[in-house]
């Protein structure tokens, strides 16, 4: 069972084994085993929290502790794309 992780902008450069000219964006289906929250996904790819800003789970603006499950779609944007959205929404969080 998998989660769709979409990685945008400069964060694509963090993931090894892909040519970023072809990864527009980088779409990865990851095993949901052992993945409970967005923070776990970041961990898996060795992405620091500070390198990200906008995080979406199924289109909902989310925080690091937002829970994720099979079939979810997760969008990760780098810090340098932190424009606009944050003024209008509060992060959805679990815990």
């Amino acid at each position: 069972m998998t989660i769709l992780v979409k990685i945008f902008g400069d964060l694509r450069k963090k993931i090894e084994g892909y040519n970023i000219s072809d990864a527009l964006p980088l779409n990865l289906q990851i095993e949901s085993n052992g993945i409970d929250t967005i923070a776990d996904i970041l961990n898996k790819f060795s992405i620091e929290k500070e390198e990200t800003y906008h995080l979406f789970v199924n289109g909902t603006y989310s925080g690091y502790n937002k829970k994720v499950k099979d079939g979810d779609r997760v969008g990760l944007f780098p810090k340098n794309m932190s424009l606009l959205y944050k003024w209008y929404f509060e992060r959805n969080e679990d815990e």
Binding site: K6, G9, D10, H54, Y61, F77, M81, L83, Y85
Partner: peptide, 14 residues
């Protein structure tokens, strides 16, 4: 790096 079109993916994802 990406111009104002940086918003395409952000707003679509949202």
């Amino acid at each position: 790096s990406y111009g104002t079109c940086v918003l395409v993916n952000i707003i679509n994802e949202a």
